[in-house]
């Protein structure tokens, strides 16, 4: 942070020599203007989504008489329709169940794996780590067809359990690498002290390493939750019945009906489906940024 600040002041102090403009005008042109364009474009779809969900249908499809960028008479009709005339609450519940289940499963598996790789160092542990990392590079688009047959063999087709078991395939590699990074930052001496005091390895993991790795666990947890909430292709391929669908799949397959799209309800559904992760995100922004950048740097 301080590095960046120092560097930018250096850049700013150097600019008057090279450019004829006064540095304030130049700063506005070179930084604030493009930055506000970026923010505007990155946020516009969300604004459009939100404003569409509260617009009555007459305003929605009539740009001539109503300014499309604003609502003159906001309505909750679309959201009401969604909550009471469709299975939306069920989809939300299923998605929540799947996301929480797969998050806990992958946190459990990856904590143990990261501890073994980083702290119980054994011959070949770097290779096991590398193998788990490579698993992250296998995209779901290659796997979903054979996985569908595996799921059918296990008798899990059309069950949310299938998703809970399958999501860890992309969550475990990510979480393991994140946690390996966190475990590295915990001094070895703490564990050695505990070993000298006669603690068993599992006691060390539970009483010393895990409490110190809580920020890493939170990062891995919220990341897993977000990724499983957003997952699409497996949920589309493995779930058939309307009640068991997750929100992203259900909106696309159950709400898009016929030729006349109900944009109000569709956008309200998208807004409500995005809110849990957006809320989660706003609470833990720093964890997201640190886990995203930490995972890339590893």
């Amino acid at each position: 942070m301080t590095d960046a600040a120092a560097q930018s002041t250096n850049v700013a102090s150097a600019t008057p020599d090279t450019m004829a403009w006064d540095s304030r005008a130049r700063r506005v042109m070179m930084i604030y203007l493009p930055l506000s364009c970026f923010v505007l474009i990155l946020l516009f779809p969300f604004y459009w989504m939100a404003i569409t969900s509260f617009k009555p249908n007459t305003e929605l499809l009539n740009f001539k008489e109503h300014n499309p960028f604003w609502i003159s008479s906001p309505t909750l009709a679309h959201i009401k329709h969604l909550l009471f005339n469709t299975a939306y609450p069920t989809w939300l519940k299923t998605t929540m169940f799947v996301a929480i289940g797969s998050t806990f499963l992958s946190l459990f598996a990856s904590t143990l794996a990261a501890y073994a790789i980083e702290r119980l160092r054994f011959r070949g542990s770097p290779y096991v780590g590398l193998g788990i990392y490579l698993a992250y590079l296998v995209p779901p688009s290659i796997l979903f067809i054979p996985l569908a047959t595996v799921i059918v063999q296990f008798g899990l087709f059309d069950s949310p359990m299938a998703l809970i078991l399958v999501y860890p395939t992309f969550l475990v590699p990510f979480c393991t690498w994140l946690l390996i990074g966190y475990f590295k930052s915990i001094p070895y001496e703490l564990e050695e002290c505990a070993l000298v005091d006669g603690a068993t390895r599992l006691q060390i993991l539970r009483r010393i390493t895990l409490p110190l790795a809580v920020p890493g666990l939170i990062s891995a947890g919220i990341f897993s939750f977000t990724l499983s909430w957003n997952e699409f292709i497996y949920a589309l391929a493995f779930i058939q019945s309307g009640a068991n669908k997750t929100v992203p799949v259900a909106i696309l397959t159950e709400l898009v009906t016929g030729d006349v799209y109900q944009w109000g309800a569709l956008m309200a559904g998208s807004l409500l489906g995005s809110l849990p992760v957006a809320l989660f995100y706003s609470l833990f922004v720093d964890y997201y940024v640190s886990s995203l950048t930490g995972a890339v740097k590893e």
Partner: peptide, 28 residues
Amino acid sequence: LRAIVLLPWIVPTVLSALAFWWIYDPQF
């Protein structure tokens, strides 16, 4: 600002894709 910028990546892709579908509507 950094938090805002990351939003499109956090929100489920299908849901923002639906918003784009609506933005790309032939008539409206």
